[in-house]
Design a binder for these strands. Sequence first.
RNA 1: GGCCCCAUCGUUCAGCGGUUAGGACGCGAGGUUUUCAUCCUCGAAACCAGGGUUCGAUUCCCUGUGGGGUCACCA
Length: 482
Amino acid sequence: MPPRVRIAPSPTGDPHVGTAYIALFNYAFAKKHGGTFILRIEDTDQQRSTQSSEAAIFDALRWLGLDWDEGPDVGGDRGPYRQSERTAIYREHVQTLLNNGTAYRCFCTSERLAAMRAEQEANKQNPGYDGHCRGIDPADAASRAEGGEAHVIRLRVPEEGETVIVDELRGDIHFSNAEVDDQVLLKSDGFPTYHLANVVDDHLMGITHVIRGEDWITSGPKHVLLYRGFGWEPPLFFHMGLLRNADKSKLSKRKNPVSIDHYRSLGYLPTTFLNFLATMGFSMGEDQERFTLEEMVQAFDWSHVKTGGPVFDGVKLDAFCGDDIRAMDPQALKDALVKHAFEGRLETLVDLSRERINRLDDFLPYISFFFGGEVDYSSVIGKMVPKKRDKKETIKVLKAYLEGIERSEAARAFTVEGLGEFSKEFAAAQGWKPKELYPLLRAAATGRTASPSLFDTLAALGKDRVRLRLRSAIEALRRLAD
RNA sequence: GGCCCCAUCGUUCAGCGGUUAGGACGCGAGGUUUUCAUCCUCGAAACCAGGGUUCGAUUCCCUGUGGGGUCACCA
């Protein structure tokens, strides 16, 4: 039976390189064995999921050439492929769990849960649900639920014994049931949590192999217990190592550009990017590290996959990409260059520069800072710290801004208006005048003291590039003598 | 902290009981190039530690150490 695998991203932000990484391995494995690669959207978090994020994920994965055989936008006969459209299915299935005692209704309020956690913390106990509602008579619980009392549905984890998850890459992993929490399966808003939705969907969609990041290992026993509760055969599990920051922590946007779009906008070739990603954990053997997706598919075998978490180091990616650019034929390179530089943004660049150039030939030099990654701060570094501020404070403000553009609803979409609104409030909150903040941001984002309107500039640069440069500006400031 | 995972040059991937421990990126030196880049040559650079098993351990086992993940009505 050919394998059916899936990638199940949550549309809650920019398309993540980790998603591409896991997608690549799912894809390679499926294609190697003539199987099916499925894209499922895990949008059960109604607060954070967005339509635009979903679209961006599709776009990013397609850019890389990781096309899926079934998914929300391409269809398939095991749909729908968006979890928000499957809520009836989850509710129906959770009923069988309720009926056979694998799950129970819990009426605890969030206040009680918070108090419970506080107490557990005070007593240095491991946090976890205390089973307060486990003993409620199912019939009573059902009628209370019928009466409209708010509640969630939890997994009833056996108090004794252990649950084993079979990892095809790592062998058996044993968990004592006492350590496994009574996870919420169905939230009070009627939406399932990841655990329930994932198991129900994987089963119903006929998923045979679950290839995912190792950060899921600890929830493995919950999933196994769920399969058991349903009376289903669990799929085979493969937990990949996680991509890391230079300090070995899990790859994060705080420390690294993690959006696929970032690498795309910096002009990495998608084929190179994929090849580079593949070398993180996979090898062809025989010291060969340059290969195409097709070649990887041909050679794919789990014995060539490492479980250690690789550091995602862009330096080598640059070298790979440079080699590939040199190898392109002149016409293809010319086309790629023009497309990359101007497609979709020529209009913006012209708008932003037309009042500031006198000759046609001024155009390219003027807009040059809209391209490329890090910039040279040597001509502006001396002007970055505002007159009445010091270096330390300036660094602090830049760091806060960096965090702010993630947190702020207004700034997150990185539009001209949103950035303006956010930045004004941000300055006030920091006790800085716009006159102090804006030149600093301009210098940090562009390496210049002059540019088009700050927010136009930031928006046109794009969030990832701005983030990258702000971080590098902080580094430049740190190196500056006091 | 509890539980779980991982462990070869700075990074990445080889090695799957006996090797001068290999390739790539990066780094250093030299050469080609008017310069830079490219390209070529050479070089420095690693088996986390301690116990076992074995004639023999980087390789198998155990312990320690280190790093990571996870402990939500987020995925």
